[in-house]
């Protein structure tokens, strides 16, 4: 088994995709190949680092932010999907507004309050929409609490925070190791909760601006300066979040696996992207990125992508396992491959 094959095994190993036999084959090789052992260590470290990336949360509730828009949608959404574009753009005057307050009224809880708070925060009191007085009344004393929270968030310099309710003590890991933008509270999504009274209990010190960042980002030549901030940056990365799925592997060191670069050629009209990746020819639609066509994986080598000027077809060179060279032709209207005419 050569190192390249082992690379694939190591990659799959990291995803927990190997059976016992494959694992022992991999470990056999790694045991006597220092390069692969090093690579395995690096991939394992990388994978662990990826698993520990902070589970960022938005600085305010996105659903609350779009609720008013969703209200506008309501009248249309039930009916034709075709009306979609219209709805996005056109704020429907009274009819929609009335409907909206009806159903927001039904929600009655956090959502409505948060919507009001959001509007207050963004636009100030003058921005209150029609009917919001009623909603405020409904909201009752909760609103006062929310106001307090809002103010706190505002004072900490996070302009867009809506902070609907600020209940912080929930399941999210981000509570332990808050990764927030600025100091806003980040309400977890709690769909059915109707009242949230424990306000203003943001436990983590609202994180200060980024003193460490600056130092780390501009490492100066003088040793002391860089070492300190780096070290603390290292400490910062440790989220408590360690997803469980992937097994962890030991041994260490280095090997460079440089793969040949992909070919990637856009069609002249920009609608297609032809790619050669690891021996396969692939054709993607650029508008939605979907794979429209992929060559059969029958070995051999592919290269030399060339588009027809009118973007109707693409050709490339295929050399099969026996070294026979041919030109292949893919018509984008058929998405089939054939020998070049």
């Amino acid at each position: 088994m050569n190192c390249e094959e082992v690379m694939e095994l190591m990659q799959r190993h990291i995803d927990g995709d190997l059976n016992a036999e494959e694992t022992s084959r991999m470990l056999d090789h790694v045991g006597h190949c220092p390069d692969c052992a090093a690579m395995l260590q690096r991939l394992t470290n990388l994978s662990r680092g990826l698993e520990q990336l902070p589970r960022v949360v938005p600085p305010y509730s996105l659903v609350d932010a779009i609720l008013p828009q969703l209200g506008d949608w309501e009248t249309e959404a039930a009916g034709a999907e075709a009306a979609e574009e219209q709805v996005v753009t056109a704020p429907r005057a009274r009819r929609a507004a009335r409907k909206r307050s009806e159903w927001i009224g039904r929600l009655a809880g956090v959502g409505a309050i948060a919507a009001v708070v959001l509007l207050l925060l963004i636009g100030g009191p003058n921005f209150l929409p029609m009917g919001s007085a009623d909603r405020s009344k409904e909201a009752g004393s909760d609103l006062n609490n929310d106001r307090i929270t809002t103010k706190m968030a505002g004072d900490n310099g996070s302009p867009a925070a809506s902070s609907s309710g600020a209940n912080m003590g929930d399941r999210s890991v981000t509570t332990d190791s808050p990764v927030t933008f600025g100091a806003s509270t980040s309400p977890e999504d709690e769909p059915s909760a109707s009242t949230k009274k424990d306000v203003g209990t943001n436990p983590g010190d609202p994180t200060s601006p980024h003193p460490d960042r600056n130092a780390a980002a501009s490492p100066s030549a003088s040793g002391d300066q860089t070492v300190e901030p780096r070290a603390s940056a290292d400490a910062q990365e440790k989220g408590p979040h360690v997803p469980s799925t992937n097994p962890v592997t030991p041994p260490p060191t280095a090997m460079i696996m440089q793969q040949p670069p992909d070919e990637e050629v856009l069609s002249p009209d920009g609608q297609w992207r032809a790619v050669i990746l690891e021996g396969l020819f692939q054709l993607f639609r650029t508008d939605d990125g979907t794979l429209a066509y992929e060559s059969p994986s029958n070995g051999g080598k592919r290269s030399g992508i060339v588009w027809k000027e009118d973007s109707s077809a693409v050709t490339y060179t295929y050399v099969d396992a026996d070294g026979n060279k041919s030109f292949r032709y893919v018509d984008v209207s058929e998405l089939k491959e054939k020998p070049a005419p």
């Binding site: 690096r42 470290n45 662990r48 680092g49 520990q52 902070p54 960022v56 190791s177 808050p178 990764v179 927030t180 933008f181 600025g182 983590g204 994180t207 200060s208 601006p209 980024h210 460490d212 603390s232 940056a233 290292d234 400490a235 910062q236 990365e237 440790k238």
Partner: peptide, 16 residues
């Protein structure tokens, strides 16, 4: 992002 510093020496060794 603002990352909260955590005193976790063990974690520091584990994650390169």
């Amino acid at each position: 992002l603002v990352f909260q510093a955590r005193d976790n020496v063990e974690g520091e060794v584990l994650s390169a």
